[in-house]
Amino acid sequence: MPTEVALLESQALRAEQMGRVEVLDKIKSLVMLPDGMHLRAEEVARYFEVSTTSVRRLTDRHQRELVGNGMTVLRGAELQSFHSEMVSLWKGEGLGSYPQAAATQLRLYTRRAVLNVAMLLRDSDIARSVRTRLLDAEEDLRAPCVSLERRVTRIEGCLADVGSALQELGPVLGRMSQRLDSLDRKLDVTHQVVNAVSIRLTDVSHDVIRLDARMDDLAHRLRDLGRRTSG
């Protein structure tokens, strides 16, 4: 699991957490500009309870990373257009006069950029709380994965034991298969013998019937002969 120091030092680790912007509002309410999408350096500084100068210095050091996570720098016509839009929205929400500075450029931070600042700003209790919440949530997410890995490892161990047992049973099963084949052959021979005996018994039955008929015929002849002799 990454540590807070690792998060401060590693851009790759910070990039893994960039989708977790909901953590910001769990620590402290994030006050956006009237467009609902941006903050200026002043709002970012108020959120982290540090000076605007600290936010600007940090932004100067990590501008490329922050731009990659949604920070924009407005100048010229873009800056004037943004100010005009904010003046209209500001008045529409009854917020009074829009605090328009005379600067020639303006940095705007999205929620992702603010989260990026939270993972870079060292001297802020709010930023530390954000980092702690990110790391705690990361540990909670990893816990089920670790448990699943352990279960998979146990299952693999069981399957390995089953595989070994099957290897040991292989020769036994082979011998049993040979014996069953031998029994099948003996049963076939037995069936053939039984069929032959059945046929022979049928023939004997026919012979007995013919013998009975001949005995009856002989008995009739003997009775006829006896009557003739006595007459």
Rank of each mutant, 00 (worst) to 15 (best):
R142D: 12
A113Q: 09
A213M: 05
M18C: 04
L187G: 07
T3E: 03
Q63E: 14
V189I: 02
A219H: 10
S164F: 03
Q105Y: 01
Q100Y: 11
L33P: 01
S182A: 14
I27D: 01
G231W: 01
L187D: 10
R210T: 13
E16M: 05
E93V: 02
R61T: 10
R227E: 11
V162M: 11
L134G: 10
A113D: 13
K26M: 09
M18V: 00
S84W: 02
D161P: 10
R179T: 15
A12Q: 14
G76C: 00
L166V: 07
E49K: 06
S51I: 08
I27N: 10
M119S: 07
G231M: 00
K91S: 13
R185M: 00
G96I: 01
S29R: 13
V130K: 05
S147T: 02
D136L: 14
G170T: 12
L66Q: 04
L222T: 14
R131D: 08
M176Y: 14
S182C: 10
Q167F: 04
L30H: 04
V197H: 03
L222W: 03
L166F: 11
T52L: 05
A143D: 05
N69S: 08
Q80A: 13
D184W: 02
I209R: 10
M32P: 12
L173G: 09
L121N: 06
L187K: 11
L134R: 07
E93Q: 15
I155S: 08
